[in-house]
Design a protein around this nucleic acid. Sequence first.
DNA 1: TTGAAAGCGCTAACAC
DNA 2: GTGTTAGCGCTTTCAA
Lengths: 337, 337
Amino acid sequence: MAKPATIEDVASLAGVSIATVSRALNEPGKVADTTRRKVIAAVAQTGYTTNAMARNLRTRKSNMILILAPDVGDPNFSNILVGLETAASKRGYGILIGNTQNDPSRETDYLRFISSNQADGLILLTGHLPFGLAAQKPAVRLPPIVAVNEPLPDADIPFVGVDNVEGVRTAAEHLISQGHTRIAFLGRGASAIARMREAGYRKAMEGAGLRIDPSFVLECEGTTEGGRGAVERMFVRDRLPSAFLCVNDAAALGVIISLSARGYQLPRDFSVMGFDDISYASFVTPPLTTMKQPRHDIGAASMDLLLTMLEGIEPRSRQVLLRADLILRNSVAMHRR
Amino acid sequence: MAKPATIEDVASLAGVSIATVSRALNEPGKVADTTRRKVIAAVAQTGYTTNAMARNLRTRKSNMILILAPDVGDPNFSNILVGLETAASKRGYGILIGNTQNDPSRETDYLRFISSNQADGLILLTGHLPFGLAAQKPAVRLPPIVAVNEPLPDADIPFVGVDNVEGVRTAAEHLISQGHTRIAFLGRGASAIARMREAGYRKAMEGAGLRIDPSFVLECEGTTEGGRGAVERMFVRDRLPSAFLCVNDAAALGVIISLSARGYQLPRDFSVMGFDDISYASFVTPPLTTMKQPRHDIGAASMDLLLTMLEGIEPRSRQVLLRADLILRNSVAMHRR
DNA sequence: TTGAAAGCGCTAACAC
DNA sequence: GTGTTAGCGCTTTCAA
């Protein structure tokens, strides 16, 4: 077989019309039993597979989902990606990935997949609409979109992610349950995620009737460097917390490094908590107590939501929040008063 | 604009034929300057974008590359993925990813993208041909393929990856340069990678005129558990090495954990080296000295090779080996005799 | 239950 | 340099 078999080859071999072949394959119920069997046999004999390009052209559907992420190499994203892929594959969809590196021109460029009909829907891990879609009169018609991980500001787009408020609240409550009262929150920031995590912290403190020392809430980027810097700034103060609740594991790691470098013993001298459960959280010394993001589930839920929308069904809820799980390791100790 | 503009809309607006529009867009040289400008203007006005499905159907090309990987969530793969994506995007290609989880039926299933013309080429990070392609009379015609990371056995498929032999040799030579002579290699195994890494170790030892104590070469899987187990088996012996050269960082991590648990101080009592430079290598205590895989470059080189093949150019060499870089951290110390 | 035929939007051969 | 036209392989009316 030099050339792949077409629907015509199958039709003539089975002695039916191409319409019947098409129906036998796509709507088996509408075809007589004996006819269908003949078609199946002919398909097997010719090794026929539907030419997706032709079908897509005709049906204006690609069965492809475009995923835009700032950095697929980031474990946080790559694990969500696995969930996305698994769910898509299960329903016969393929995924197309665009690594945007937060470059607006790249984001816009990937929209060609949408406008050229190569993708039916869009998953955004970027935290914002790509430029071409954001414009008032968008350059491209809006396909079904789901935002993952980070909700989109100023846009009514369905969202799937971890429940940051409840997650950090759980974390803070764990610290409180260990007797800590002077708990610092490192990671105040402008991003939606930072704000929600801080809100969780405040909720827990309030709920426990604990006063928040304003100097215990520090701005800090969610990076190892950020965590490090925050500790340095903290240590010019008189009053010190007994526990550090960090906006994420990367920052917590910086805190641990910085504290260790200052000669403190953890968790004896200070307790530290992170959020995310990144892969090396368990390999730090001491192993980091943190909240685990259900990354695979987040990916799967997002894709399910998007595919549901693609089927024309309005989702029951435009927001899916998944619970983070408390992972007890060794960076938190009972507070000795 | 309820419906997206087609080439006909552009043609009639510009007052030319659809063929001219097509040419103006795809072969600008073949069109008169003034005509081209009219077309460009009409395109801008209508917001036209080529319908990729129609073009693909006509040209029998999809400008899509299928990437098969056992686990995209694995940082080792996800970082290669970034390189692949970047290189593809630069040349106007999109990437389609298939997460196979080493499941043969999933591998085969993804070939539908090939057989249905949705992908022009294939990148394999799986270490073997998918079942549908491996069969004597393959179910699918072989598209251009490049194997990455792990060469395919028994198949003449172009390969791109790190130079494992030279890499481990460099690692061993570093240990030797620090005065170590009793160097153990943990990670003997059947896989191509394990064999090459062991070969690098032997080469270095031979090159330095050092005898290899056969009991110093241990089988062990490239996992933290594997490294742990190997140390335990080692310690029932009388003779102990002064340095552990591990098949990868995961195993090295197990070694460090096991050695630390036994109360040894590293790197004072033993030196440990890994291979890969995984993300938490720098966060272990002591930070791991290792060989860094140029993952991004591996991805980019693979994609470049594949796209070159797709253009019908036979690659100059069917094997691209990239050098691993020595990353000096703190798990290796001068040997005190 | 089946077949004939239109047509999805585009590129490329051919003619002018 | 430009236009006409065939046809890529398929799904889907419409008629029988």
